[in-house]
Every structure is written in structure tokens, then in C-alpha cells.
Amino acid sequence: MERVPILKIGDILLVSIQVDMSDQTAVALQEDLAERIVETGCHGVIIDITALDIVDSFVGRMLSTIASISRVLDAETVVVGMRPAVAITLVELGLSLNGIRTALNVERGMELIAIERADEPYDERDDGPIPEPTASP
């Protein structure tokens, strides 16, 4: 069975899903992540799904579970890079991924986590500001 690699960058764990995951792989990722959060003491998890061309209810549930588990372990999870077609399909499927924070890309995901950690105890969680206007390509 394939395993999805988990990278540690500073205080953040980065998971970039590059393969069409089987359900077992998804469950294994969930377990691996929980272990790594405890092991590293990281306070942020970024799951990059840019490469995923579909997210079905199983993967959607996995993302929700990871977010809940990491919250219990005092880490913030951000799902980044969801493709438009995937988002439209998820809405139609009836999955709104409540409780999951999202960002357009890894960079914004990192900013989001940084802001979250900066103003603890947090309030106004939904209004994540952008620090500086950056020239995007």
C-alpha cells in the first residue's frame, strides 16, 4: 500500500497528496498524521490537495476527521489548493466540509496558521486578513 509522505517545515506539517488514494491509504494518512503531530509538537497542518482531481465523500470525511483530531491535539488544519471542479462537485454532492479551514494555496495556508497562532486566544476566526498586498503572477 502506498503511504502519503508528511513533511515537517518549521512548526508546520505539510502533506501534499499526489496520488489517487485508495481508502486504505487515506485511513493510513489519518493515523500517521495524528502520530506525527504528537511526535513533533507542531501546531499547524497543511493538506495540499492541488493534485487531487476528485474528492469523494470518503476523502471528504477523512479531511474532516483529520481536522477534528488535530484540533484535539492543539494543531490547526488547513486544506489548500482545492480545484474549482472539485469544489463544485463537492457542493453538488452535499458535502460542505464544515469545520475545515481552507486556503487557496500553501502560502496562504501558512499565513492563516500564523495568524491563528498569533492572536490566541482566537476570536473572529473567519476573517483572516491578508498582511501585505503581494504581486501575484
Binding site: D23, D53, I54, V55, D56, S57, F58, R83, P84, A85, V86, I88, T89, E92, L93
Partner: peptide, 17 residues
């Protein structure tokens, strides 16, 4: 279309499971 591809693949994934 890309969106329709995504929809039908997602539906197939659910039903195959």
C-alpha cells in the same frame, strides 16, 4: 467538460465503494 468529468468520476467512486 472538466466539471462533468469530475462529477461522473466522483459519482462512480461513491457507487463503486
Amino acid at each position: 467538460s472538466l466539471v462533468d468529468q469530475t462529477k461522473v468520476v466522483t459519482a462512480a467512486s461513491e457507487l463503486a465503494r
